[in-house]
Design a protein around this nucleic acid. Structure first.
Lengths: 249, 249
DNA sequence: AGCCGATGGATTGTATACAGTGAATACAAT
DNA sequence: ATTGTATTCACTGTATACAATCCATCGGCT
């Protein structure tokens, strides 16, 4: 008996408002950036895995994620497919997906490949870097130096540092190969940079890499980059061996 | 078109019969294998690109592909997304996708990375190969020897050869990295193995690699594998330089 | 009791409707 | 003629309905 007069229109207009809400939420979430819901879903799932809110080994279904994120299955499906092809999720046909888990051996394998690729990137960068790139690297170094006890700032700086070197190497296939390996880093859990002493040593190594690049000393850049990867593995192994997440039975 | 009788219901019932046809077509097409339509679409598009039926640089839309393959947009969308993440297609938001094109410089970059990764795989394989793997490799070699003038047979054998070595290296990250690079091979067009002399040389190199692996001579396996990649690039360059597809202006 | 096919619940796979986007085009105004 | 504005158009992004599939479990039959 309520206002029946406008019922038809009311029913029609409801979805529109929802749509508007969705869009505005989408835009505001990333500061005006208009990412698709699928991208949002992808990032959210990845983040939840990295932060441990979704445990490795957990069982995910499209409907659950869709309900969690408040969107339909379609974008969620797209996101899960993407994460599967990245190797973060293991697809089980008609049965959902499992969050991959990496053991210590997997970690060693990952670092073995990084030890192959990242020195190559540093060497290529040393051969190609111009003043602009070197200035950018130096800028990162300075910011790092000021943030050595602030992992929240250090982590994106670290990523930028490696991104600049990779971009400077100007080899899209090298980038693809490294990206394929990096995709599984969220499964490793907390960053090494949460560890103060490691952060300092990593910073010193970054500095040595930039010095070599600036001198166009490809061999030296390669060697230091290799040492950087090795050092990172050692820190990881110490943390895994020492603290809780042993492979258990 | 269909009888205009109360469109809703008419439209509803039609798809059922289509679905049955589609499914049976799907099963029969691949000899009883029940791949999803998305996988079919993915393979078809990839194949069409490799065979040049879809030109590099072409503009693809979901509806066009869906019409071509006789399925709905949903699986096509999934396939295109996948090919985008592989790097075969370049997404243009709201505007379809472009088929990537590689120039000679891209090709050099690709082979530079392969020269990094494939020797590493051969070395790791030499360190780990058991009798079973060596027997499998020898079997491939024998089949190759019989098919040196039959590219249609040689191409899958070649793939199997490299797959066995990669699997034997037992490093999922090495596999991922190589897969990321190989994904763009369809863009290179015809296989080198269509060239008789090259096929013979490649076969000899395969044999040398297996010999080294069997002797557990990792360094030698690595060196030959590197030479194998280099040789492959040289053949490619000769073909591109000699025959038509120069980068034009 | 034990095997074997039917049944149901959970989950993905697919089709389709519709809203939203952005470029191109047509048209008006200066 | 040129610029600004509305309209159209082709396309994607998203939601939703429905079909197919897998697995577990339950019942009948031997």
């Amino acid at each position: 008996m309520a206002p029946r007069s406008r019922s038809r229109r009311a029913v029609r207009s409801a979805p529109d408002e929802n749509a508007l809400q969705r869009i505005s939420a989408r835009r505001s979430a990333a500061g005006g950036d208009a990412r698709s819901l699928a991208e949002v879903a992808c990032d959210e799932i990845r983040r939840a895995i990295r932060e441990g809110r979704i445990a490795t080994g957990a069982h995910l279904t499209e409907v659950d994620i869709a309900a969690w994120l408040g969107m339909s299955r379609t974008p969620v499906r797209e996101a899960m497919r993407r994460l599967q092809s990245e190797g973060l999720l293991l697809n089980q046909p008609f049965r959902g997906a499992l969050v991959m888990r990496l053991d210590v051996e997997d970690m060693r394998q990952m670092f073995a490949v990084r030890e192959l690729l990242e020195p190559a990137a540093a060497a290529a960068c040393a051969a190609r870097a111009g003043p602009a790139e070197i200035a950018a690297l130096r800028a990162i170094l300075e910011q790092e130096a000021l943030a050595l006890d602030n992992p929240a700032a250090l982590i994106p700086l670290n990523r930028q540092f490696h991104d600049i070197i990779l971009e400077c190497a100007r080899n899209q296939f090298l980038s693809k190969a490294i990206a394929a390996v990096y995709a599984l880093i969220p499964l490793l859990g907390d960053s090494n940079l949460l560890d103060g002493p490691h952060a300092r040593e990593a910073h010193d190594q970054h500095r040595a890499i930039v010095d070599a690049i600036e001198r166009r000393d490809a061999a030296r850049a390669e060697a230091v980059a290799r040492e950087h990867v090795r050092h990172s593995l050692i820190t990881r192994l110490a943390r895994v061996g020492g603290a809780g997440i042993t492979k258990s039975r």
